[in-house]
Design a binder for these strands. Structure first.
Lengths: 158, 158
DNA sequence: GCATTAGTACTCGGATACGAATTGTCCGAGTACGCCAGG
DNA sequence: CCTGGCGTACTCGGACAATTCGTATCCGAGTACTAATGC
């Protein structure tokens, strides 16, 4: 799985600590976690396209949550980076080769694919049950405040 | 996810139709599904290393199941190809950057990682509950027999 | 003192190189079967 | 007819390229604030 998922989740959680309407800049986020500033832009852009974040330019601009933290699931963030498509892709190899099954015999989905899709659904269900607000509460209060202060620019040094 | 997972699962299911002690050759498997013969070798080798299949050389040789189909889970086959490690890898970015948390404050696992690991566990549980025998039964009997016949060399043309 | 306007600094966004992992292919090592020759 | 040995054909296994995806980076477009200037 892509490493960008970890970056995106941490960034979204940190942005959730800011009061509504306030934005945190890409550079601040990158410095906070020691990430590549330019590369982080790519992932944040994906989050904007997916409707998780909203971007604004100019001074005091940056990224902010598109909705309340309670209304954003972890799954949404993950799918914004990894893509919403299923991880397993059935290429219907039963319809190929010397003993290929005719399309008429393949009205039922491939049993192999069914199992993989079921596991994929279980994975998504698990991620859908946790929101960004849930995640944010599990961070020690000290770091919640420290993150918000750094994002606002109030905090110069840790 | 790697495409080899689909190949491996179909091949293992097809080998499960052979009577105990009998092997199916790599070439036969590749022709049956229209796959690349040389590349399939790589995946079958992974299955041998993982203890799912047993290989034997020489005429009448090939691959056979290392255990009964009821004792091989889908998860084992998937992990043989994809690797047993978790799909999500926490790099502890909370311990990096200007506001890095000291190691002493990180005795608890990262909340982000916890959620991802839980989803990973759900995915694995789902795959662990299905065996190769289960999967084999879900294929129409006609194709079960056709696959076995082709593996034995009895069947020349579909 | 106030409004206007030009400048500046800060932000995101797309286009562009680099590296690693998956995909794909080839040739060599080893083994079991079958055939042939000798007894 | 039986037995031993040799050859052949078939199998897997590891080593070697090509392509795709994830990683990493730079520079340009746009906006809001600021400050200076003229009225």
């Amino acid at each position: 799985m892509s490493q960008g998922v970890e970056w995106a989740l941490h960034c979204v959680v940190n942005l959730s600590y800011l009061e509504s309407g306030r934005s945190g800049s890409r550079t601040r986020l990158a410095e906070y976690y020691g990430l590549s500033d330019a590369y982080l832009a790519k992932h944040l852009k994906s989050l904007v396209r997916a409707g998780v974040l909203v971007a604004s330019t100019g001074p005091q601009g940056g990224f902010r949550l598109a909705r309340a933290p309670e209304d954003i699931t972890v799954l949404e963030v993950v799918e914004a980076i990894e893509g919403a498509g299923p991880s397993f892709l059935c290429t219907e190899i039963r319809q190929q080769g010397v003993c290929a099954a005719p399309p008429a015999a393949c009205r039922r989905a491939c049993p192999v694919a069914k199992v993989m899709y079921a596991a994929d659904a279980a994975w998504r269900d698990s991620l859908r049950q946790v929101t960004i607000a849930d995640l944010g509460r599990r961070v020690p209060k000290t770091y919640q405040k420290r993150g918000a202060d750094w994002m606002r620019g109030t905090l110069v040094r840790p």
